[in-house]
């Protein structure tokens, strides 16, 4: 079995910390060569069969360099195909593990099904659709592979503030789903969604924390170098304490993430909560980082703004903090009420 720190070391060698936002196409090739596309693919399907720890380690390192290659949607797309039941499953898996790209969309789809069974509408949040051969989409009739060259399928790029990522709308106009490419039926879609959601949250959380760590490193380095009033600004206690709080938020969010990665019984809401905490820590770290960089942080010359923009994007992907914090509260309340009722029943019984 591959050790975690070996994976991390290899990732850091392939994607060195000082080369931020590495070229997308080169990165993609490298990612495919390193075998990372098939990290989570079971051995019986030709993959490496590694667990959440391995993918978390990889996504952390990709976050650290502000990766431009769409490994997260690719991994999720591959997992969807792996879980699906199409006739050419093995062929698809082999192609996807080898570098062909079929991402899962990361934002809601607003689709309508016509009487004739065709589908129209917009599927949001498709990463790098320009390099995809197909997209794994949740259609009204179930998850499906939608080939980009099919009739009624177009893509529209929608530029985002995080210029290290490319987001597309997949626009369907009377698209007739191919039965051979249906990964699930409508009933099975919810189950697949529930299986994929924790994977998406763990990957995004790792991406957040890798990037937050890099943003903190840049900030601390800048504070030690930048001098005002005849000393490095790292020597001003008020600023130093802010850096300490950034570190604290980051390390605590990391601890929660890894505990959930390793807890096979964690619920999907608990995993989403780890992503929420990670995204909020990333946001906090980058907001402070901009301020601590002073003027230079407001210019495109310095890379720190790219971390902030990614933080703001990651915050919104797969559900906002408001959404998940409320869900966490609701579930904790229900669990607590149930425990209290059980205790009362036990006491009276």
């Amino acid at each position: 079995m591959i050790e975690l720190n070996e994976l991390t070391d290899a990732a850091q060698k392939a994607f060195p910390a000082d080369a931020l936002s590495p070229d997308r196409d080169d990165s993609w090739k490298l990612v495919a060569e390193m075998g990372w596309l098939m990290v989570r693919l079971p051995e019986e399907d030709g993959g490496l069969g590694l667990g959440r720890e391995a993918s978390t380690a990889i996504h952390t390192e990709m976050g650290r360099v502000l990766a431009t290659a769409p490994l997260i949607p690719a991994q999720l797309g591959l997992q969807a195909v792996q879980a699906g039941a199409i006739a050419e499953r093995a062929e698809w898996l082999e192609r996807l593990a080898g570098g062909e790209y079929a991402p899962l969309h990361l934002l809601p789809a607003r689709l309508e099904r016509s009487a004739g069974g065709t589908v129209s509408g917009t599927v949001g949040g498709v990463f790098d659709a320009d390099m995809a051969s197909a997209v794994v989409v949740r259609l009204p009739m179930g998850y499906a592979l939608v080939p980009l060259d099919a009739p009624g399928v177009t893509i529209v790029e929608r530029p985002i503030w995080d210029s290290g990522r490319r987001l597309f709308d997949l626009v369907l106009d009377g698209y007739a789903p191919e039965p051979a490419l249906m990964l699930t039926d409508a009933d099975g879609a919810a189950a697949l969604h529930d299986a994929l959601a924790p994977e998406a949250h763990l990957a995004l959380a790792a991406d957040c924390l890798g990037a937050a760590g890099a943003a903190l490193d840049l900030t601390v380095e800048y504070m030690k170098m930048r001098r005002q009033f005849d000393r490095p600004i790292a020597m001003f206690q008020a600023l130093k304490h802010r850096a300490a709080d950034m570190k604290t938020r980051l390390v605590v969010a990391e601890a929660l993430l890894w505990s959930r990665v390793r807890d096979a019984e964690a619920t999907s809401t608990q995993i989403a909560a780890a992503k929420t905490l990670a995204a909020e820590a990333f946001q906090f770290v980058t907001e402070e980082a901009i301020q601590l960089h002073g003027g230079i942080g407001l210019t495109e010359e310095h890379p720190i703004h790219r971390f902030m923009k990614r933080a703001m994007l990651n915050l919104q992907l797969c559900g906002s903090p408001d959404h998940w914090n409320e869900r966490t509260g609701r579930e904790a309340l229900a669990a607590s009420a149930k425990a209290a009722a059980n205790a009362a029943a036990k006491a009276s019984g």
Partner: peptide, 25 residues
């Protein structure tokens, strides 16, 4: 930014020199 959600992550044309540029980001 929080209330606008994902919509605000898309780049929009801004108005120069205004606290209301047209995009919360």
């Amino acid at each position: 930014l929080r209330l606008g959600g994902m919509d605000e992550q898309y780049v929009a044309p801004i108005t120069f020199g205004d606290l209301n540029t047209g995009n919360w980001m």
